[in-house]
Design a protein around this nucleic acid. Structure first.
Lengths: 122, 122
DNA sequence: TGATATCGCCTACATACGTAGTCGACAAGG
DNA sequence: CCTTGTCGACTACGTATGTAGGCGATATCA
């Protein structure tokens, strides 16, 4: 099950604030100037794909994520690793460093992360 | 300019062995059972997108990459980082660790990589 | 030299995706 | 009650993508 770019904008809103109605979601979308119709179409597609649940509330539906943001992030990164790097982590991270200049903070976080991964392993 | 999944299979062949003709590319595609027509369509689309150059050689064309594999890897990782992680590297790597079990080797490579990033910075 | 294989060119077509419009039901306010 | 706004259901439509077929020119082989 794949969430497209447009759908992701919708998921982002609902991950941030689960249980919104369609109109509320539409009003919280940032950056795009979408008609509310567009947002409703995306919501419907996400429900169809099993990414959202639609609970009737009065005359409308409230939308709740069925997949966690983190779950989606993990699977997307995994797919990319497989597609472009034969599933290998290090080359992916190396290209990431090329792609976006890492701040000192980033580097420190990465250091901690690697340390933690190493510790977890033993 | 976006290279799709199907197109990527074609690019992979040409990155591995630049200057192939269409039939050769088709015969080297792994995993898919595509008709040679399919491969030719993908080649044409890649030329159109500016990802490949087609040089006439006798009665056919030889295809050469116009964008490096590494370039594509970098931009794809960058896009993913932006789309899913607000451009931040560390969370991406953390999810990568969740997505694919890292081997000891992976961890060591990451360690080295982070060390190198740190050194480069000073 | 005639049949066959190959090549590029153009066309096709189903499904996905981005983006939105129409319509009928219902709610809310005057 | 009647008008007006809102909601979901359904429909629409252009472009992208995955996958391939047909045609005409040329090369090759018997």
């Amino acid at each position: 099950m794949r969430i497209t770019d447009a759908e992701l904008s919708v998921m982002d809103v609902i991950w941030a604030e689960p249980g919104l109605g369609a109109a509320e979601v539409a009003s919280r979308i940032e950056g795009k100037s979408w008609s509310d119709k567009t947002v409703k179409t995306l919501l419907a597609r996400l429900v169809e794909k099993g990414a959202l649940r639609a609970d009737p509330e009065g005359r409308r539906y409230l939308y709740t994520p069925l997949i966690a943001r983190s779950e989606h992030q993990t699977s997307a990164v995994g797919r990319l690793a497989d597609k472009l790097f034969g599933g290998r982590a290090a080359p992916l991270v190396a290209h990431l460093a090329d792609a976006r200049d890492l701040t000192d903070d980033d580097i420190h976080e990465l250091e901690d992360l690697v340390r933690r991964l190493k510790d977890d392993r033993n």
